[in-house]
Amino acid sequence: MTPASPFLDIRRIYVEPAAEALPRGQAVLARFPQAERIPVASHWRIPELRDGDPGDYLRPKREALVLGVKKGLTFRPNGRSADFIAPSTSNGCAMACAYCYVARRKGHANPITVFANIEEVLAATARHVGQQGPKRAPNQVDPRDWVYDLGENGDLSVDAILSDNVRDLVALFRGLPNAKGSFATKWVNPDLLGYDPQGRTRIRMSLMPHGLAKLLDVRTAPVAARIAAIPELHRAGYEMQVNFSPVVLREGWEAEWGALFDELDDTLPAAVKDQLAAEIIMLTHNAALHEVNLAWHPKAEELLWRPDIQEEKRSESGAVNLRYRTGWKGRWLQRFRDLLAARMPYCTVRYAF
């Protein structure tokens, strides 16, 4: 497995006092003894992060870390990628995908916040799983287990560089007979190979054609490295699935996705193919993110901002986003599914949107 590159250079840590008092908070601070510590009342209210220079989008992701306490330990029903969205143990990301919905919510570069009250999160998750009992019927998420999304607002493969929160989550689900943890990732972290998940954690490797990823998946692992990591993670005991996300339409999109499917088919061993499932997610964009991107990555907007084939839609959260036009989107999605079925007929589509 390709080792994670040193793409974090933490120089400033914004610290809530309650987080600094906890063992996990102290452990995170000990990893970066030279970093400046800046006390903050709340991990949400840090003006220099929220109102930074729009053109200086990447530096805070590389140099800043926030250490906080997760306040709300709620579990939201999902039914798409997971049965439930678990309370997150982090927020934000060191990567900078040009279409990221977290940036849509916060308006600017959103570096990683590590939540130090991991014991509370673990205990709340174990209680919630216990309350569900056995899964009563198969669904598109999983035929047997309740599945909990653990990384809705970040990438846990990167988070594992900063703390043992991810290791603790994998250990928790290893001992739960009726539930799995799940997270999507675009990073390759060899430390995950030693976590011994025993099939109780699902990793959804996010993939797109190489050329698209070079333009849109800024500061992520190369697609070739992500593909190469899938068999290794599976041998280490993870359930491996793939996310084809987002599907960005441009001239020649079928040819480049077809080439990616062929590469996967040539690379993945039979043991992975036998259990492989995928999510397919068409691009969603947003006017506010468009403005953010124009300041630091305008070339990406040539592909993402396509009002000629997009229309406004209100999301479940109430936000107004841009999606491919109704009617046409369904046709393009079906063409994508047909292409996948022709090249990788063993790959089940769990969820397509």
Rank of each mutant, 00 (worst) to 15 (best):
P3H: 13
L8F: 14
V15S: 02
P17V: 08
P17Y: 05
E20N: 06
E20L: 11
A21W: 02
R31V: 10
E36T: 12
I38M: 10
P39R: 07
V40K: 00
V40Y: 04
S42D: 14
W44M: 14
E48Q: 05
D51T: 13
P54G: 05
R62L: 13
A64L: 12
L65E: 04
L65Y: 03
V69N: 03
L73Y: 05
R76S: 15
R76Y: 13
G79S: 05
R80H: 13
D83E: 07
N91F: 14
G92E: 00
V102Q: 00
F115K: 00
E119Q: 06
V121C: 02
V121Q: 03
R127C: 08
G130I: 11
Q132P: 06
A137P: 04
Q140V: 13
D142C: 07
P143V: 08
W146E: 01
V147L: 07
V147S: 01
L156M: 12
S157P: 08
V166D: 01
R167M: 12
D168V: 12
V170P: 01
V170Q: 02
R174F: 06
G175V: 12
P177I: 15
V188I: 07
D191P: 07
L193V: 06
Y195A: 03
M205H: 01
H210F: 14
L215H: 01
A225L: 11
R226F: 07
I227P: 00
A229H: 02
I230S: 02
A236L: 09
G237C: 05
M240W: 01
N243G: 10
S245H: 09
V248L: 09
E251L: 11
W253A: 09
W253K: 00
E254W: 05
A255P: 03
A259W: 05
L260F: 03
E263I: 10
P269G: 08
P269N: 06
A277Y: 07
A278Y: 04
I281K: 12
T284E: 15
L289P: 00
E291D: 14
E291L: 15
P298A: 09
L304D: 05
W305V: 13
P307L: 10
K313R: 14
R314L: 10
V320I: 15
T326K: 15
G327F: 10
K329E: 15
W332R: 10
R335E: 11
R335H: 10
F336E: 05
D338C: 09
A341F: 09
P345C: 11
